[in-house]
Design a protein around this nucleic acid. Structure first.
Length: 1094
RNA sequence: GCGCGGGUAGCUUAGUCGGUUGGAGCACCCGGCUGAUAACCGGGAGGUCGCAGGUUCAAGUCCUGCCUCGCGCACCA
């Protein structure tokens, strides 16, 4: 068993880096897992980061919370395996490579070569892997980075294929259209994330267009900000509840600006609320009616040749849509099916023809209109306006004034291409979908089984998302990703493969049918363009080509729970025994990301919950409260802190700075403060113990005396430790890590360092063996061991060093002080025998009464200092007596209190009235319900009572009334104030009904004995400072001479005391004579002192 | 625009069921204490509890509206 070595000064960075070496040599991470092999499994899943960006401090935060739960559960005896993971597919990777190779469009990528491009992506993915690894190791995040899952691995892709095939077989996968922001120049559609970066405010022409009704001499007015979508118009939407009016133009407009107009007598239809906004003519309202009356009416197409009717019954008629509002436009929404999401959904529901009027390159299709065909749509605004304005309008069937009513410049935010700066077009693209709407009820049910921290993310943000779930657009027209394993013939027959074996079968089938195919070996690369080259054969002998999409990379990570094991092709047992997951933890920005896709995949593939607990972390902001982002350049480099305060302080700061789910303003000063406060203090407590333990050859295993026989001070700190530890644990369970750590920090700094150690220093100075010293050493040892174990999950470095030195055992092998439920027979990650678990706890005994007593003692000590400040009496000058008036018995700590107060004797005084008078205060809690509106009047009567003693007596006697209100003892609070002429303080302990008051009175009389003692303390203090200044060894002896002037008598016993305290071999006190010139001097209360030390 | 979460001292924050004197820490000032560390203790200064209404005997706390910051959704005719 280890006898502790001396500690030395703290160099946190050196300590941590040296410990990392040790961990590496010992394989400490693995052995912390191996030693819990027989424990119940606790399943953690790492959300895979992308390694194509440099890790910042926000990544450290997420990893700290992942690590702390895993370490904590491990210490609780659970088996917590931790496989690393990397997210390697997706648009961010492609964009990075496109920037580097200057390939700004799909055309350019394809002429560069898809194979070469994807190779570049594959390499780019690992650009910062080394940085990530270094950061991960340095911060002490224990995760297996040597055997990670990687989403680009063939095995991983194959598992994703398998999952997709499950969806395909359950008819949850389908091909459709989705309207996406699209850049015709780069030929790329964008995810919302990219679009969000490209919003710009632009001013564009918006137009009010007349749609001439068939069979009626009236036009419906509709508004659009994108004139280029007008040729694609196939419908008009109105709100069924909205009120519309039919108006007749009665006079020409004055000051008309721009094109368009209307003739006198023309009739127009629009929402009543918007008449003022829209109309520029005087007009007479002919009738009013709800939108539902318009539904079904037909109107003349603006560009009759642009869109073929097909078999649509509803094309160019008025439709209803409940999302139509009257905040903008005319209350009538122009609907071009292919160029707006609402339009598309409405068009599909209503059976409008889905036909493009715009090519993928952004120009109008042939046949739209002779003046528009082949031109870039954004350049045609003027032409379209001209065509509409001509007599009869673009279709020749409108009124003489044309089909344009008005044009108006309109400014709004509009998405632009992040690279070319061109405006994006909303454009309906072929796309693949997972039918999430079909499993919505299951999603809701599974979500209700998940424990969210904080719960409002689960119920609110995530719940909201799920309740409004839409089908998941899973395909991307990109290159670098998991290819969609669906092959399709021109006539729409489809096959989905779920494994390499199935791929090989299909290829063989096609080859047999005479279709040429490249080789398809067992290790065929499952990426583009290899997989694109395979041709399948349909059941009726037609060729099938692969759908040219890759999957949303969120699909990849959503498969992580099984794809990491290459399930179902390998590791069936491993997966099945580790599902569902017990714990995941990521930033709240993953709500619609990973949190969702994990659940989406598990619901559609396994019809199962995915994870049982989810900790959703708040965003990390910089010290100014701005989001950290690469573009703002305000990312904090974790190494700034790893190299200065160390990873312990950085991690502890992150956890104590706020609740895990609150946004964290990362303040570099805060890390420094944490280091200085928590870690230096803890180290110095440890050093105090370890240095004396080393000196004395202290062995914690030997002669450990029973706690009950130790001094009250020891029993107090042990009890406090226990109480704090229990609360700490409870806070962990309820995810309140910040509260847990703040309380523990308070314990270390205040209770342990500032009180227990301060009060115990002298106990260890004694060089001889004695029971009191042993008690103190055992106590310190036991406290430090518990603290180390409690802190280990949060900040694993320094406490491991301390724990090893104190016990010989690494802290990550140690048991959680509150018990090890994971190691119990029959325990699972969720349930265990509570009593049996409690029996495994190793915290010291609790004595609440003792804690309360000490708390009172400390309050009194503080009160004593206040008294001295008020009375102008210096702390070193003793008082003859202190009286404690009222309150519980604290005699067990009278000796401590006497020292703290610097009084010769503590006495208990029963007679309150000797020092105090009574004051009464109303208790509103009980009084208010009785007195109702009179409460303030009654309260004044009580507060201003002429004779409170009498009033109190009357109340106690019963039957007392004030202003007709019965007053009993509960209705008043008794407060006490010092009578004039006493130096006293009253403290209130506790709250509410349990509150009581204790007073402290100090005797301010001086006596020669006291003056001598006080002077002795002042002199001693100065000499000690001098010793320190002269850098004497603690054991060194000195020769002392003191010259006093204007001083009270210095008693023999005090002279001896000074000599002993200052380790003076010889001490001479001169009451007269001249001190040498080199003597130090000071003055206190008019006494002048000079002294020399040699 | 909709939803969620914030706004408390110069900064970081605590504040439970509404209870009459809103606590800490950092920084600042004064004093004390120290063989006690980047310390500790006492005191001081510093607050329109985002703003405005309302409910109540009583509002930082509950209600309504607004302002503002962050995030998410929708950006839409």
């Amino acid at each position: 068993m280890a006898q502790p070595n001396a500690a030395g000064d703290l160099d946190a960075v050196a300590l941590e880096t040296a410990l990392l070496e040790t961990w590496g040599q010992e394989n400490a991470f693995q052995s912390s897992i191996d030693s819990r092999r027989s424990g119940a499994p606790f399943i953690f899943l790492e959300g895979p980061p992308t390694a194509n960006g440099k890790p910042g401090i926000h990544h450290v935060v997420a990893r700290a919370y992942k690590d702390l739960v895993c370490r904590w559960k491990t210490m609780e005896g659970f088996l917590v395996e931790r496989k690393g993971g990397w997210d390697t597919h997706g648009l961010p990777v492609e964009i990075e490579v496109q920037k580097r190779l200057d390939l700004m469009s799909n055309e350019q990528i394809e002429s560069f070569g898809m194979k070469e491009f994807n190779q570049a992506c594959r390499e780019s993915v690992w650009t910062y892997e080394e940085s990530w690894r270094e950061m991960t190791e340095r911060m002490g995040y224990w995760i297996d980075l040597d055997n990670p899952y990687v989403t680009l691995d063939n095995n991983y892709v194959e598992s994703c294929w398998w999952a997709l095939k499950q969806m395909f077989s359950k008819d949850l996968l389908y091909r459709g259209h989705k309207v996406l922001p699209y850049c015709p120049q780069t030929g790329t559609s964008y995810s919302s994330h990219e679009v969000a970066q490209g919003y710009k405010e632009v001013e564009e022409p918006s137009v009010y267009v007349k749609f001439k009704l068939v069979d009626q001499d009236a036009s419906i007015l509709a508004w659009t900000t994108t004139p280029w979508t007008l040729p694609g118009n196939v419908g008009l939407a109105v709100g069924p509840e909205v009120t519309y009016v039919r108006v007749k133009v009665t006079a020409d407009a004055e000051n008309w600006q721009g094109a368009g107009g209307a003739s006198i007598g023309e009739e127009l239809i629009l929402a009543k609320d918007l008449m003022k906004e829209v109309l520029r003519h005087h007009a007479e309202v002919l009738e009013e009616f709800p939108g539902s009356e318009l539904v079904g009416k037909a109107y003349e197409p603006l560009f009759p040749d642009a869109v073929p009717r097909g078999d649509s019954q509803t094309a160019w008629t008025i439709l209803e849509a409940d999302w139509v509002t009257t905040t903008d436009g005319t209350g009538v929404v122009h609907t071009a099916v292919m160029y707006g999401e609402d339009d598309y959904n409405l068009g599909m529901a209503a059976g409008l023809p889905a036909h493009h009027t715009v090519e993928m390159n952004g120009s109008f299709c042939k046949g739209v209109h002779p003046q528009l065909d082949g031109r870039y749509v954004k350049e045609c605004d003027g032409t379209i306006i001209e065509l509409l304005s001509s007599p009869g309008g673009s279709n020749g069937k409108g009124p003489q004034s044309g089909l344009l009513y008005r044009e108006k410049l309109y400014s709004h935010d509009y998405p632009h291409c992040w690279r070319t700066d061109h405006p994006l077009l909303y454009y309906a693209m072929d796309s693949w979908f997972v039918r999430m709407t079909a499993v919505k009820e299951r999603l809701i049910e599974f979500n209700s089984q998940t424990e969210w921290a904080p719960d409002w993310v689960g119920e609110g943000r995530f719940g909201e998302w799920i309740r409004n779930v839409k089908d998941w657009a899973i395909s991307r027209e990109r290159y670098w990703g998991t290819p969609i394993p669906v092959w399709r013939s021109e006539d729409g027959q489809m096959k989905c493969v779920g494994s390499i074996a199935e791929l090989q079968q299909e290829v063989a089938l096609a080859v047999a049918a005479g279709f040429e195919n490249p080789d398809c070996p067992d290790d065929v690369d499952l990426h583009r363009p290899i997989v694109d080259e395979f041709t399948f054969v349909s059941d009726d002998g037609k060729p099938m080509k692969r759908e040219p999409f890759v999957m949303d990379c969120w699909f990849d990570s959503g498969c992580a729970s099984f794809a990491q094991w290459h399930y179902p092709f390998e590791n069936k047992d491993t997966f099945e025994s580790s599902y569902p997951i017990d714990y995941i933890c990521e930033g709240v920005d993953q709500t619609r990301g990973w949190f969702y896709t994990l659940l989406a995949v598990s619901t559609t593939v396994f019809d199962s919950i995915s994870y049982k607990r989810c900790l959703s972390l708040g965003l990390i902001l910089d010290a100014e409260g701005k989001k950290m982002s690469k573009s703002k350049g305000n990312i904090v480099d974790p190494w700034d802190h790893f190299n200065r305060e160390g990873a312990d302080a950085t991690r502890w700061y992150m956890v104590t700075a706020g609740a895990p789910w609150s946004p964290l303003k990362f303040d570099p000063n805060g890390v420094r403060e944490t280091y200085a406060k928590m870690f230096l203090t803890l180290w110095n407590v440890y050093k105090f113990h370890a240095d004396y333990a080393a000196l004395d050859g202290f062995d914690p295993e030997k002669s450990a005396n029973d706690v009950s026989s130790r001094p009250a001070l020891d029993r107090w700190i042990l009890s406090r430790m226990s109480s704090v530890a229990s609360e700490y644990h409870n806070d962990f369970v309820s995810w309140n890590f910040h509260k847990a750590c703040r309380d523990l920090e308070d314990f270390v700094v205040n209770d342990l360092s500032n009180w227990y150690v301060r009060r115990s220093r002298r106990r260890l100075w004694d060089e001889a063996e004695n029971e009191d010293k042993a008690s103190c050493q055992h106590t310190l040892h036991e406290i430090l061991v518990v603290i180390c174990r409690l802190m280990a999950p949060i900040s694993p470095f320094m406490v491991d060093v301390i724990h090893r030195n104190l016990t010989g055992q690494p802290v990550h092998q140690a048991a959680w002080p509150l018990g090890v439920p994971g190691s119990l027979e029959g325990a699972t990650s969720d349930e265990w025998d509570i009593e049996a678990a409690a029996a495994t706890a190793t915290i010291p005994p609790v004595d609440k009464k003792l804690e309360e007593t000490m708390s009172l003692v400390r309050e009194l000590a503080e009160a004593g200092r206040r008294i001295r400040v008020d009375a102008g009496r210096r702390q070193r000058l003793p008082c003859a007596q202190g009286w404690i008036v009222a309150g519980p018995d604290v005699s067990i700590f009278h000796d401590i209190l006497a020292e703290e107060l610097n009084v010769e004797e503590i006495a208990i005084e029963q007679d309150l009235n000797r020092f105090q008078k009574v004051e009464l205060a109303p208790n509103f809690r009980t009084l208010a319900p009785k007195a109702r509106a009179e409460v303030n009047a009654v309260s004044n009567e009580i507060k201003n009572a002429q004779n409170p003693d009498e009033m109190l007596a009357a109340i106690k006697a019963g039957g007392m009334q004030i202003l007709g209100v019965d007053i009993d003892e509960n209705d008043v609070e008794i407060r006490r104030a010092e009578r004039d002429g006493f130096a006293a303080e009253t403290v209130t302990i506790g709250q509410g009904e349990d509150a009581f008051q204790v007073s402290l009175v100090l005797d301010m009389q001086d006596t020669p004995l006291l003056l001598s003692k006080g002077l002795a303390r002042d002199i001693t203090r100065r000499i000690q400072a001098k010793r320190k200044e002269m850098d004497f060894e603690i054991e060194a002896t000195i020769d002392l001479q003191v010259w006093l002037q204007n001083a009270p008598e210095m008693f023999e016993s005090d002279q001896t005391w000074i000599a002993t305290e200052t380790r003076s071999a010889a001490a001479v006190f001169h009451s007269e004579g001249q001190a040498p010139a080199n003597a130090d001097s000071f003055t206190v209360d008019g006494i002048s002192v000079q002294f020399t030390v040699e």
